[in-house]
Every structure is written in structure tokens, then in C-alpha cells.
Design a protein around this nucleic acid. Structure first.
Lengths: 357, 357
DNA sequence: ATGAAAGCGCTAACAG
DNA sequence: CTGTTAGCGCTTTCAT
């Protein structure tokens, strides 16, 4: 507990110090701290006691240098507070720790062209056993020579790595689910407020929406572009409020909320005049006015599944890839969606919507 | 086994390989990559070309081992998607990178008693030059022997470190600002929906609210406990809707939104019958119904200022502490607050409750 | 079941 | 301006 202050202000104790104190060789200390076999219980105890006594902490830099492995995973993420990326990062954090790895994070800035390549480069210098690319924006093809496995959320970029794993891309299916819900309620078609086109997620969601419309032979209204912000949803709403729009699928909840705000300001009722579906199931979406029908991405599932695959690729370099499985997806039907007014008598009071699926 | 034979399939190239290729000593390569002076421009160019040519990347583990420094900073954060902690983490990420350091993250789980100590321990093993404790929950006193400077957001825990820096705690002032705003509008008193008491931020906000009330001699209604979620704000709203409440300060925007939902459901109008102020300025707060009056924490400022101090402590161990300065704070007045409906301004003054401190 | 020796790739002193 | 010589604290390999 107490460090000898007087004589040895000589940096942190090393395994050699522990060995000396325990009366064993340095290698034996190493064995104990790596849980290797062939150490007698007695020696193990002595070493542990000595280590505790002098406050020994293994030095990971030395470990990494000698072994070539760091037991750490690096993640490249967009440095933004947006709900999707942030939630995924939280899931990755947890999954990395659960797997017994340390986490190094490098964040990129939207609009920085060399961002992703530089971020990967920096992780490689730091030394990581695997990389998670949670970079939602298409910054063009990367050509990187990476010597560790890479887990990619979003579209796989062109990079040269021993193993590339793609995980949990469900935006398209969720968008179909959302659009189908509105169509099922009887709306003739569904408008779409999309995210920025450079985002993979925005493209996937628009694509899912488009496919749902086509499958029913519904007309495909022009996409309204947003930037994920409530502000942009609000602007889109002002544009849409004049038309005879009855149903809108917004590519995230924030835009849906801005949209609803604009609709209400324009004297429309939601869902009386216009039904709205969001995307994300942000924590407040059930409590806004009206409570928002939305779809939920299984971030934790995506992160833990993805990480399982990545760790497998790290630890069994020659084995085949595991089956990623299919993450569960769901739609949360709340009060922002209803059949179009023409099909009901009174549209504006809080009507209970039969969940249909 | 010798490395770097012509076959080239032997692990990564080292600075020795670069030296060989450039016809200089290994030390000179090191000089170039550390931007040391006293390297002729010509040699510098040759080394850089050779490095590029053979795809050399410095090995940070070796660097760290030899120098005792890692140029990395570790952060302990609560593994949650909550707006506050997540926003602060984003700010820290950016600030750490701007300072030229790498970032290691360890997240803790709410309710895990040994979490923070274990997290710090793990960072110390990984090797970091400084630590950021962005742990919003009071898990009781820590007694840790840490040998690097520590930057703390929230209350300083009891730990033994060469330098402890506390940064940007402005919750209390912001809470006063929020409460004063309602009082200034003419409300007799202000109710408060608080966060969980184990959170420093919750306590600070409740304290700011309390001080504002006392300063005016307003009665201090019992605190309503929430858990930051819109759901809990909703529950609090149901409880409050029966009483003759005219003004509420919620400790975050999510609870404010849940509260408003409950108030509206109970037939109250906001701000007609009840004024509500939130806390955080979440991105959607301007677009909910009604647009929410709220206060904003300057996360980016807090992070960059804190980090400046931390880096200073790392790089100038013997210099005094820098002046943290005061982060700017502001209230965003939107449409959820108004004067009380019956400005009857009864002549009877309420007696100030005796201050207990 | 334990130990000795030899580096991992780099930086830290010193030379020159 | 450039090179030489030692390690940093650990894992590896090979003995015992």
C-alpha cells in the first residue's frame, strides 16, 4: 500500500521487482500474470502477494512490444452527437470491454476528406489487433493497406485487409417496414424526408422506402432532402404543408419532430391530416406530441454481434467467418399515424391505431 | 529469426529497415520521425522517401516503452447514451485529438461499485499520460494511487494523484438561471423535477434551484424525483397536474418533454397554465410542442478547457495550474414559459423559510 | 514446474 | 549534424 518514498523514487515497479520480492525468477512472475499453467499454487500465491505489496502493474507497452499483440481494438467514428452514431459507439464500447479488449477511439470530422484514412493510420500506429469502422459517411473509396481484421458498419469501403466483416445493416428493411405501415393504413403513397445522401444510412432508408412503394405500385414522390436535424425537418414540413400530403416517412426522429412542428404550425393535424413515421426510437419519441410511430435499430445487438465476429477473426485467423445471423427489427406504432382522413369520419382526436403487421 | 529478408512477408518494417534503405543510421530515422532538429533537409527527405517506399509505420508500443510516455489520454465515462455524458465524450474526443494525443476509453456501468476504480486501473495498465474522469455518478470515495494527472468533471473524488484538475461545473449556476427566469416572470415559486440523487449533476441542479428560491424568499416545494427519462418526467407530471403548480424546472429536457406530455394529457396548457424550463438544449428542444425554454451546458468549451489544463499538467509537471476561466452560460427562452395566468399578485408575502445552512 | 538468455522497436544518453 | 551504445519491461525459446 505504501510506496517507499525515501529511497526508490525510481519509476513504477516492474516484474523484476516482484520476482525479487517473491524469490522467483522474472519469468515466473510473467507466468502468473498471464495465467499460464505449470505454476504451483504456492508460488502463484507468493507472487500475487508480492505484486500487491509493492503495487505492481503490468506494463502493456512492453507486453505489446514483446508479443506483437495489444489486446486492444480501435474504432473510427464520426465525431458527432447524433443519436445513431453515438448509440452505436456506446454499444461498441461495451462489446469491446466484454470481449476483454481495450478500446482506442479516433473520431473523424464530417467533411474531412482524408479523415478516415488518417484515422485508420493512426490506429495502426498505436497498435490495435482489430479495427471497427463505424463511419457512416461515404467519403469515397479508401485504399488502405491494413494488416488487421476490420469490422465495418455501413457499406464496405475498398480496403485491403486480411478480413473484412460487415455487420448489421438493417436500415433498408426498417425503412420498408415503416413505409409499409403507412401504406397498410390506406395511404395512397408516402413522402420521404431523407438524410444527407453521402450517408450510407440515408441511402439505405431511401432505398427501402422506394422499394416498398414500388412493390405496391404507388407513385413515388420526389425525395425531400434533410440533414438529420429537426430544423431541416421543419423546413421540409413547410414545403410539404401546402401539398396534399397524407403520409410522411422521415429518415430519423429528429426530422420527424421538426416536420410535425411545421405541420402543426401550418394548421394541419397529425395524424388527422398527415401521418408521420420516424426512425430511431429516440428516448423522447414516445413523449412528444403526438407520440411518434417509429422504428428501432438494434444497436446493442449490432455491436455485440459485430464484435463477436471481429474477435473471432482476430483470434482464429484461419477459421472461416461466423454466421452473423439476422438482428431483430421492429416498428413501434404510437399515435402519429392513422388511416388517411378520407377513410375515416373524424381524424384528429387521439385515435387508437390497431397495430398491424 | 531475422526479419526483413527480401521475401518481405516478414512482419512490419521497422525503423532499422528504413535506415538500411536510406543509408543512414537507425537513430537518424528516429530523429526524422520525431521532428528533431539537426537533420539536414536532404537526409530528412531521403528518410521520408524510404519510409514511404517500404510502408514504414512507427511502433508506438516501442516508443512508449523506451520513452515512458504514450502520448495518449484515457477517459473513464459512463456507458450510456444519455445526452449529457455522450455530448461531453464527443467534446473530449475532439479535444484529445486536437491536443495531439490518442484516446483510450473505458466505460463503466451504472450501479457497478468497483467500476471507476477498475476502469482507472485498466487505463493505468494500458499506459496513459493523463486521465479524464467523466464519471457523473457518485459511487463513493475512491482511494486510488495514480501517478498521472487527472481531470475531473463533476465532484472531485478522493484520490491520490500528482495533480487533480476540476473543470467546468456549471450546473448549479445554470439551474439558478433557469429558476430565476421563472421567478422573474412572476411565478410565486418553482417546482423541480430532479435527476437521480447519486448524480453530481442532479445534486448541483437541485442546489441551484434551491438557492434561487431562497434568494427570493419563495417557498420551497418538495423535489420530485426523476431518473432523467421522459417516462419519469411523465410520471412526475401526472403527480404535479393535480396541484396548483404554475412553474416547473426539470433537470433535463427529456424529463421536461415527458412532463409537458402529462400536463397536456391532464388538460393543462403549456405555458398557459404551467411554464416549463428544461436543461440541456437537446437538438430537438426547439421543435417540440411547445418549443422548450432551456439552458445549455457548454460541453465543447468544458472539454477543451479541461483538456488544455490536463495537457499542461502532463507536459509541465512543475508549473502551476492554469486559470480555468469561466465557461459562458446562457438560457434559451422559447415558448414553454410565460407569466402565470392569474397575475393576481396576492398581497400576502410568503415568509422565507429559514435557511438551514 | 521453473529459470536463463535473447530480443521486440524504439528513445536516451553520449560521443564524434 | 550524425552515429554508437544501452536499455525500457515484457514474451519467447530453449534448458533444466
Amino acid at each position: 500500500m505504501t510506496r517507499s518514498s525515501r529511497s526508490g523514487n525510481t519509476s513504477a515497479p516492474s516484474s523484476k521487482d516482484v520476482a525479487l520480492a517473491a524469490g522467483v525468477s522474472q519469468k515466473t512472475v510473467s507466468r502468473v500474470f498471464n495465467n499460464e499453467q505449470y505454476v504451483s499454487a504456492d508460488v502463484r500465491r507468493r507472487v500475487q502477494a508480492a505484486a500487491e505489496e509493492i503495487g505492481y502493474r503490468p506494463n502493456n507497452a512492453a507486453r505489446a512490444l514483446a508479443s506483437g499483440r495489444t489486446r486492444s481494438i480501435g474504432v473510427v467514428t464520426l465525431g458527432t452527437g447524433l443519436y445513431g452514431p453515438a448509440s452505436l459507439l456506446v454499444g461498441i464500447e461495451r462489446a469491446v470491454q466484454n470481449a476483454g479488449y481495450a478500446l482506442r477511439v479516433v473520431s473523424t470530422l464530417e467533411g474531412d476528406p482524408s479523415g478516415v484514412a488518417g484515422a485508420v493510420e493512426s490506429l495502426l500506429e498505436q497498435g490495435v489487433d482489430g479495427i471497427v469502422l463505424s463511419e457512416p459517411i461515404d467519403e469515397g473509396p479508401l485504399s488502405l493497406q491494413v494488416d488487421v481484421p476490420v469490422l465495418v458498419f455501413g457499406a464496405p469501403p475498398s480496403l485491403d485487409a486480411p478480413r473484412i466483416i460487415t455487420a448489421g445493416v438493417v436500415s433498408e428493411e426498417l425503412a420498408r417496414l415503416a413505409t409499409d405501415h403507412l401504406l397498410d393504413l390506406g395511404h395512397e403513397t408516402v413522402h420521404h424526408i431523407a438524410g444527407p445522401r453521402r450517408w450510407y444510412a440515408a441511402r439505405d432508408r431511401a432505398e427501402g422506402w422506394r422499394k416498398a412503394l414500388r412493390a405496391r405500385g404507388a407513385v413515388e414522390p420526389p425525395v425531400v432532402d434533410g440533414d438529420w436535424s429537426a430544423r431541416s425537418g421543419h423546413a421540409a414540413g413547410k414545403a410539404l404543408a401546402g401539398d396534399d400530403v397524407t403520409a410522411v416517412f422521415a429518415a430519423n426522429d429528429d426530422m420527424a419532430i421538426g416536420l410535425i412542428r411545421a405541420l402543426l404550425d401550418a394548421g394541419k393535424r397529425v395524424p388527422g391530416d398527415v401521418s408521420v413515421v420516424g426512425f430511431d426510437d429516440t428516448p423522447i419519441s414516445a413523449y412528444v406530441t403526438p407520440p411518434l410511430t417509429t422504428v428501432r435499430q438494434p444497436f446493442d445487438e449490432m455491436a455485440s454481434t459485430g464484435l463477436r465476429l471481429l474477435v473471432h477473426a482476430i483470434e482464429q485467423p484461419r477459421a472461416g467467418d461466423l454466421d452473423p445471423g439476422q438482428p431483430p427489427i421492429e416498428i413501434l406504432v404510437r399515435s402519429s399515424t392513422a388511416p388517411p382522413r378520407s377513410r375515416t369520419t373524424s381524424g384528429h382526436e387521439r385515435t387508437a391505431i390497431p397495430a398491424r403487421e
